[in-house]
Design a protein around this nucleic acid. Structure first.
Lengths: 306, 306
DNA sequence: TTGTAGGCGTTATCAG
DNA sequence: CTGATAACGCCTACAA
């Protein structure tokens, strides 16, 4: 594979001029420019990106650590991120992780020059100190400066509102694990109930492992069900009929975090537009480290089936 | 960030010795070795992978171009590949593509030193000349030397066999698009029918766009249905009841290409173990270019729900 | 066992 | 407008 020396030799100019033509190319005599272009063409020369990176001190790579348990949710993110990154001429280095140690490993292997920055997605476990160049999306209360969080309270409130408007007054709530997200969700749920003067029944609220199972085994009546994401929604839709409750006739299931677009979700849901999310992540990334945009949580939009 | 010079200075040895300690570390006096290790520790030195790459002429990156329409299928592949690549200390550079031009773009941007090799997955369109370092998985008859193909004929035959054993003698077949895969599938299907002396009804075979819709609109009776993948299986399971046919009582749906493990598939299916697939892909990649393993198509295994 | 020197392919600086 | 030359950070003959 031809290198810059070959080009400069063939074009009868110095390496510097070749470099100038191929990058800023300002202040180069037209004649030399053409000579270089011709040589490039003839030799089918492509600058070596690694050498460029070494010089620049910057590869165009963004590491994406996908810590989402819910693997299908992940794909949506990946797709959106890759699309957006490509627009910015950046590459996506993918890595999966299932726990904090995994994430740290990833960061260590990726952070030694290979990636300019890292995005961590959907970590449902506490993350220890991430580098400043990191951005988190939909992660457990990471105290990194830059992170994208959802407005869980708003989602829960809107969802409850919707179910109530649909005539569902006994609404069960399933939150995943603990942490801020769960608390905020509970908060939004409470607010909606209060607003409609509905009683709060603690037997209808479950969190953590097998929450859905525990709710169902309890045999308490409810006609609305808030679940944290599409995966659990799907499970609920599958399980409920087995407990003699038809969906949506007997119980209306609502997904609090859907990445499916309008119409594609089998149940009503709060949907977070993936491309907007990705755009925002990249904005955070390319933003100078000094500017702290503050934590403005993102609000989803209500989508309903059909 | 400390570099090799800092380490050599602190350890009072030359850069070469530092390098030796950190890589092959053979033929280095224990004393120097310790001095280097200590300096590395103190300075928290991590070799810059970009500089290494420039020297080595090899980044540890493998480009993965995901051309699968079926985005969920894709995630499975990605996960398995990343896992396997990590085992080989390699990184996964992700890229999505929807058509041949897209794939070419990806290869151009990725192939200038950034990636050591490329894997293209699930392209359902003809691929023009790929570089020798490329491997294709589940792609349309690419005439690249290295590719992993499925034994579609075997899958279709096994699937038909299974349905027949389940008492289904009117089996419909849906193939996606055209190409070798579809032909092989049809072939396996025919063979199974012949073997059981069952008649071939061309009204039960559809390919291309909206094949499922066209089959259903036709209103011909059938009690078994072969679909090309999980996505179509899901659609069939959703659609069939709307046409008054219960699954699996009236029609048993069979997915010819599932990436779900035993038990996770809602319908019987031919499953291709993803990690084996990924292993094989990487074997092809790391294999010297001279050794042509030939095209031994991979045979899936039959999985049944519950 | 060690150090020196040259190379990997670019970009940036700085005279001319 | 152009061409040396020095980084960038590491690896590795080769010589001692």
């Amino acid at each position: 594979m031809a290198n810059i020396n070959d080009v400069s030799r063939l074009a009868q100019v110095s390496k510097a001029t070749v470099s100038r033509v191929l990058s800023g190319s300002r202040g180069v005599k037209e004649e030399s420019r053409l000579a270089v272009m011709r040589a490039v063409e003839v030799l089918n020369y492509k600058p070596n990106v690694i050498a460029q990176s070494l010089s620049n001190q910057s590869t165009g790579c963004i590491g994406v650590v996908c810590a989402s348990e819910n693997i299908n949710q992940a794909t949506g993110y990946l797709h959106a991120l890759e699309k957006q990154l490509r627009l910015h001429q950046k590459h996506l280095l993918l890595r999966f992780a299932t726990d904090a140690a995994n994430v740290i490993d990833a960061l260590n292997e990726i952070g030694n020059g290979l990636c300019d920055a890292v995005i961590v997605i959907g970590a449902r476990f506490p993350l220890p100190g991430l580098p400043h160049s990191a951005v988190t999306i939909d992660c457990l209360e990471s105290h990194t400066v830059r992170s994208i969080q959802f407005d869980h309270a708003f989602a829960a409130q809107t969802a409850s509102q919707y179910l109530i408007n649909q005539g569902r007054r006994k609404i069960a709530l399933i939150t995943q694990h603990d942490g801020e997200a769960a608390e905020q969700t509970a908060q939004g749920y409470h607010q909606a109930l209060e607003h409609h003067l509905l009683p709060y029944n603690r037997q209808l609220v479950f969190g953590g492992e097998n929450a859905l199972q525990r709710l169902l085994n309890q045999n308490v009546s409810f006609n609305g069900l808030l679940v944290p994401d599409d995966a659990l929604a799907q499970e609920a839709v599958r399980l409920l009929p087995q407990f003699g409750r038809q969906v949506p006739a007997d119980v209306m299931v609502f997904s609090l975090d859907s990445t499916l677009p309008q119409g594609a979700s089998p149940v009503p849901a709060m949907s977070y537009p993936l491309d907007k999310l990705a755009q925002r992540a990249i904005a955070l990334l390319t933003m100078p480290l000094s500017t702290d945009p503050g934590l403005v949580p993102i609000r989803g939009t209500l989508v309903t089936p059909f």
